[in-house]
Simulated assay, not measured.
Amino acid sequence: MSIAYWCILVAALIPYPIAMLAKAKAGYDNHAPREYLAKTDGYRKRANWAQFNAFEAFPAFAAAVIIAQLQHAPQSTIDMLAVAFIAFRILHASFYILDKATLRSTVWALGFSCVIALFVIAGTQ
């Protein structure tokens, strides 16, 4: 299995530790987690937002990798873009939690550019 395919798995798993961080507090209500998380503040609220964003970013990334693979784009390029996407998504979550808005937006754009690049290289094959 290619590095890029493993990156799909990693991207699918990224939201879960972020969600655990958002929920890690005495008094967490597992009977109504969304209601509980909506009432959080500070880094927990930002972690919740980061997990949502990670879930939102996943489908386009997974599709881009799979399509690039199916189109027989150069494997080394697919792998490099997939690894870069993962690095940018981890940085994105970190900057989100740390409330570094400009850095967060910058790495979000870089990660999204990896997805676009995957589609572009697939389209040129």
Results as ranks from 00 to 15, higher is better:
His72Gln: 14
Ala60Leu: 10
Ala63Val: 14
Ala64Trp: 00
Pro33Gln: 06
His92Ser: 10
Lys45Leu: 09
Leu70Arg: 00
Asn48Ile: 01
Leu81Arg: 13
Ala73Gly: 12
Leu91Arg: 13
Pro74Ser: 11
Ile66Lys: 06
Asn30Thr: 09
Thr40Leu: 00
Ile66Tyr: 04
Leu81Asn: 09
Ala54Lys: 04
Ala32Val: 06
Met80Asn: 15
Gln75Ile: 05
Ser76Gln: 12
Leu70Ala: 07
Thr40Gly: 10
Pro59Asp: 12
Ser76Arg: 06
Ala32Met: 01
Gln75Val: 10
Ile86Gln: 07
Val65Glu: 00
His92Asn: 08
Gly42His: 14
Ala60Lys: 08
Tyr43Ala: 08
Ala93His: 05
Ala87Asn: 01
Ile78Ala: 07
Phe61Gln: 06
Gly42Gln: 12
His31Ala: 13
Ile67His: 03
Leu81Met: 11
Met80Gln: 14
Ile66Pro: 01
Asp41Asn: 15
Asp41His: 13
Leu70Ser: 00
Ser76Ala: 12
Ala82Cys: 05
His72Trp: 07
Lys39Ala: 14
Ala38Thr: 04
Asp41Glu: 15
Asn30Asp: 14
Pro74Ile: 07
Leu91Tyr: 12
Gln51Ser: 06
Val65Met: 04
Phe61Ile: 06
Ala68Arg: 02
Ile90Gly: 11
Met80Arg: 14
Phe55Val: 10
Phe52Ser: 02
Val65Gly: 00
His31Arg: 15
Val83Phe: 06
Lys45Asn: 11
Arg89His: 02
Ile67Arg: 00
Ala62Cys: 12
Ala93Trp: 02
Val83Thr: 15
Ala54Tyr: 01
Trp49Leu: 11
Ile90Asn: 11
Phe61Leu: 03
Tyr43Lys: 09
Ser76Lys: 05
Leu91Thr: 11
Trp49Glu: 12
Trp49Val: 13
Ala82Val: 01
Ala62Leu: 06
Phe85Lys: 03
His31Glu: 05
His72Glu: 08
Arg44Phe: 12
Pro59Cys: 05
Val65Tyr: 03
Asp29Ile: 13
Ile78Trp: 03
Ile86Glu: 04
Leu70Lys: 00
Thr77Gln: 15
Ile90Thr: 13
Leu37Ile: 00
Leu70Asn: 05
Asn48Ala: 07
Gln71Trp: 06
Met80Asp: 11
Ala87Phe: 10
Arg46Glu: 12
